[in-house]
């Protein structure tokens, strides 16, 4: 088992390096430090000296990938790529371009508000989706099922933006159940968290229920379920003791991949509700055109995704005895 995990992590190394090189090419080669400096200092009335000063201050005064002025190892180390992009591999994110803030520190403080909405949203959303999907599978081919699927397709045809705007309007402004947006520390934050969590779950119901329903139905049509029925088991026992247990395998693999991403929060929800999480941080950086932060967040997102894939593979071998550690 340990062998398998180690090998699986080693497989991920070339991909992480690939992402690192790709982001470096995008951010240092295609978009040169001159472009960056000009965007940050303002496009007009920038003297070449000001650009050079900015580049020296922020460590962009080196060649992008190969420094021909240096000899030996320093040809490769005295470059923007080595100084700025390679440290990302050991999660040293450096400082931001605009305000010179410590990105790693910012990530460490901001990941908690992100987690505070994404974790409950994930757990409760999963429970609601699974429950509704089980209902539809139980009442399959009846009017409950047909209208349930119609409702799910309709729900997934609505843009997330409308869920947020409509939710803020109805639950926040008209019914005055929750504050419309904001954040606080400690237990006071609870009242700010409920509304984004409810809206996030609502937005996920359509596609979630539809997906899990197909998973359940696929399982219900298998031979062993027919055998269980032929033995004379009740419908409830067939569904919940036999079919659902096995259906949990595809459900689990679908769910595990998103667990690391919970740290990342949600771009849109956090901006609308003014929650000082990582999603909000990223959107602010995009609008301020702070490339150091955007680059860090791209890389962090990739690492979390790859971690999710590894976790998925591991959980697969744990729950499904047919899968062997090859």
């Amino acid at each position: 088992m340990l062998n398998y995990i180690i090998r699986r992590i080693l497989y991920a190394v070339p991909i992480i390096i690939g992402v690192n090189v790709l982001t470096a090419v995008l951010f240092f080669y295609v978009n040169t430090p001159e472009d960056m400096a000009r965007k940050i200092l303002g496009d007009k009335n920038v003297t070449p000296e000001a650009i050079e000063n900015w580049k020296t201050d922020h460590g962009y005064d080196l060649p992008a990938f190969i420094n021909t002025a240096e000899g030996g190892v320093r040809t490769l180390t005295q470059t923007i790529f080595y100084q700025k992009s390679v440290p990302l591999l050991w999660l040293d994110f450096g400082r931001s371009d605009r305000n010179n803030i410590d990105i790693s520190g910012e990530i460490r403080t901001r990941m908690w508000p992100s987690l505070a909405i994404s974790l409950p949203m994930f757990m409760a959303g999963l429970a609601v989706n699974l429950f509704l999907a089980m209902m539809l599978a139980y009442y399959r081919a009846t009017y409950i099922d047909i209208w349930g699927v119609v409702a799910a397709v309709a729900l997934m045809s609505v843009s997330t933006l409308f869920y947020i705007i409509g939710g803020q309007f109805i639950l926040g402004k008209v019914l005055k159940l929750f504050p419309i947006s904001g954040y606080d520390t400690g237990l006071d934050s609870l009242k700010f968290l409920v509304l984004p969590i409810i809206i996030g779950i609502l937005a996920s119901i359509g596609s979630g229920v539809r997906f899990y329903r197909t998973v359940f139905l696929e399982e219900i049509n298998k031979d062993y379920v027919r055998t269980a029925r032929a033995k004379g088991l009740t419908e409830g026992s067939v569904l919940f003791k036999h079919a659902m247990k096995n259906a949990m395998i595809p459900v689990l693999t679908n769910v595990v991949v998103s667990i690391p991403f919970l740290f990342y929060g949600s771009l849109i929800l956090e901006t609308f509700f003014a929650i000082p999480g990582l999603g909000n941080f990223t959107i602010d950086a995009i609008q301020a055109q702070d490339f150091a932060i955007v680059r860090s967040m791209v890389f962090l997102g990739s690492i979390l995704y790859i971690a999710g894939l590894i976790l998925t593979d591991i959980s697969y071998t744990l729950v499904d005895p047919r899968v062997r550690f090859e």
């Binding site: 991909i15 690939g18 992402v19 790709l22 982001t23 995008l26 951010f27 295609v30 978009n31 990342y264 771009l267 990223t282 995009i286 055109q289 490339f291 955007v294 680059r295 967040m297 791209v298 997102g301 990739s302 995704y305 790859i306 894939l309």
Partner: peptide, 18 residues
Amino acid sequence: TTLASIPGVLLIVAFMLL
């Protein structure tokens, strides 16, 4: 696999900014 492991929205953001 490399392209897919970069979160879609952020890759789009990076490209569009550039």
